[in-house]
Structure formats: structure tokens, C-alpha cells
Simulated assay, not measured.
Amino acid sequence: MITAGFLSGHPDLRFRLLGIEKRDAGKMEQAFGFFQRAGFYADKPSQAMVAEMLWNGTGTPVDRALAYAWMDLAAERGYEGFLDLRERYWSALTPAERERALQEGPAIYARFGDAAARPRIDTALRRERRQATGSRTGMSGNLRIMVPGPAGPMVIDGSKFYDDRYWDPVQYQAWQDSVWAKPKVARVDVGEATQIKEETERRTRIDAGRPQVDAPEPKTADEQPRLDSGKP
């Protein structure tokens, strides 16, 4: 019950967990859908899973250009593992696939990027916190809340149920960043890496001149190719 109560206020974690369960059960199409739903609530690991499933054709047809667009989205906050995967993807794309990836990016960012998705998870956190009942000091320390993490399930002591890091949107984001900034991320085989003209290559994918939105800044913006400009 306590785990269900926690996850009801964290749809990002709930849908990620459901995606993992369906994937482990071999129900790949359902897993793909749940990872997308988690991504709708700004869950970067789930957005990366969508990318990998598109890249490998797991539960969905292979679409490497779209896979890059999703991995670029997963790397939006500068998480190291996703940045690395994004660059591996880009190195393996054909020129035509790169062009299409840049075309697909803006629509994906418009729906799943932090500017659109962060308000959804923030609202869910605040709503569930207001509705929570029971003692804030009487939660048993013997209970454990299991949530999916980069190296397997993470255990949250039941006595920490009401800790601000899990309910305050700003602190919750900081907690997520601390978990995923340098995660152990499985890597896909994308073939031989090729030398990229780093500065030129990056600048061709950086948002230039697009009106800025009020959203959290990525941690490594100068190393992050953005697709929300809609321009190469």
C-alpha cells in the first residue's frame, strides 16, 4: 500500500516501473507505450528507453532518425550516459537520417521536452502531497518503497515517505539529477564510431535564434545538440 501510495503521486516512476515489468515479461509493445507515458511526465530514463527500442526495433519498427530525436530529448538535462549514447547514435546515422532527425525533433520537444513535461510532474507531486493523509512522523521504518533506478531498484525507507526531496518539485528534480547525472547506462551497438568535426557539428544542431521558454537549463548546454529549433 505504501509503495502504491508513493507511486500514485509519481506517475513518472509508476509508468517507468510498468514499462520495465512489461519489458521483462516480453510484452515489448506495451513496454514501449508505458515508457512513452513516463516520458510524458519528464522521465528522462524512460525517454532513453524509447530511443533504444526505436533504435533496435524492440516493440516498434526500427527508426534510427526518430531514435536519435528521443535520445537527444533524454540528454536534455546533460545526463552523462544519455549524452554519450546520443553522440554514438549521431555518428552512426546516414546524412539522410540526420536530416530527418532534425526535422522530427521539434514536435517531440513540444510534447515531451521539459518545458512541456515538467509542469505535469510538478502538478502531480503537489496534488498528491496535498491529499496525503496520516502522520508525517509515524511511518514505519520497516517498510520499504521500491522505485526503479539506473542500477536496479532503489530502496526508500518508509519513514522517509514525506521527505521534501520526493515531493517538492525543485528538490525532486535535484534528487533525480543526483541519481542520473552519471548513471550506469546500457549501451547499444551502433557500429564503428567516426570522427566528428566537434565544434561545427555541434553548432549545426544547437538551437539558434529560437525564442527561449521558461524552462530549466540543461547542465551542459554547450555540448548538447538541441532539436527543438527545427533547423540543422
Results as ranks from 00 to 15, higher is better:
residue 129 R to E: 10
residue 179 V to G: 00
residue 159 S to I: 08
residue 88 R to P: 08
residue 70 W to D: 00
residue 7 L to V: 00
residue 119 P to I: 07
residue 86 R to Y: 01
residue 37 R to D: 08
residue 37 R to W: 02
residue 67 A to H: 05
residue 171 Q to I: 07
residue 46 S to N: 04
residue 212 Q to T: 11
residue 15 F to I: 01
residue 21 E to W: 05
residue 124 A to H: 07
residue 206 I to G: 08
residue 112 F to H: 11
residue 122 D to G: 08
residue 123 T to G: 04
residue 70 W to S: 00
residue 55 W to N: 03
residue 76 E to W: 04
residue 54 L to S: 03
residue 219 K to Y: 09
residue 131 Q to D: 11
residue 51 A to I: 00
residue 93 L to H: 07
residue 92 A to W: 05
residue 45 P to V: 00
residue 20 I to N: 10
residue 72 D to W: 04
residue 146 M to Q: 12
residue 165 R to E: 14
residue 203 R to L: 11
residue 229 S to G: 15
residue 70 W to T: 02
residue 166 Y to K: 05
residue 4 A to H: 13
residue 122 D to K: 09
residue 79 Y to R: 06
residue 183 P to M: 00
residue 150 P to A: 06
residue 130 R to E: 15
residue 205 R to G: 02
residue 179 V to A: 03
residue 88 R to I: 07
residue 15 F to R: 10
residue 34 F to H: 12
residue 1 M to H: 15
residue 26 G to I: 01
residue 38 A to H: 05
residue 107 A to K: 12
residue 222 D to S: 15
residue 76 E to P: 00
residue 142 N to H: 09
residue 118 R to V: 15
residue 47 Q to W: 02
residue 64 R to E: 00
residue 106 P to W: 07
residue 88 R to H: 12
residue 190 V to Y: 05
residue 227 L to G: 14
residue 179 V to E: 01
residue 149 G to A: 07
residue 196 I to R: 15
residue 32 F to A: 03
residue 117 A to D: 06
residue 162 Y to V: 09
residue 137 T to E: 12
residue 22 K to P: 00
residue 78 G to T: 06
residue 24 D to P: 04
residue 222 D to V: 11
residue 12 D to R: 07
residue 228 D to E: 13
residue 163 D to Y: 03
residue 89 Y to K: 02
residue 43 D to Q: 09
residue 89 Y to M: 15
residue 120 R to Q: 12
residue 186 A to V: 11
residue 66 L to I: 02
residue 179 V to K: 01
residue 169 P to H: 02
residue 89 Y to V: 10
residue 214 D to V: 09
residue 166 Y to T: 02
residue 207 D to L: 12
residue 190 V to Q: 11
residue 192 E to S: 13
residue 161 F to V: 07
residue 201 E to L: 06
residue 115 A to Y: 07
residue 98 R to E: 10
residue 88 R to Q: 13
residue 109 Y to W: 14
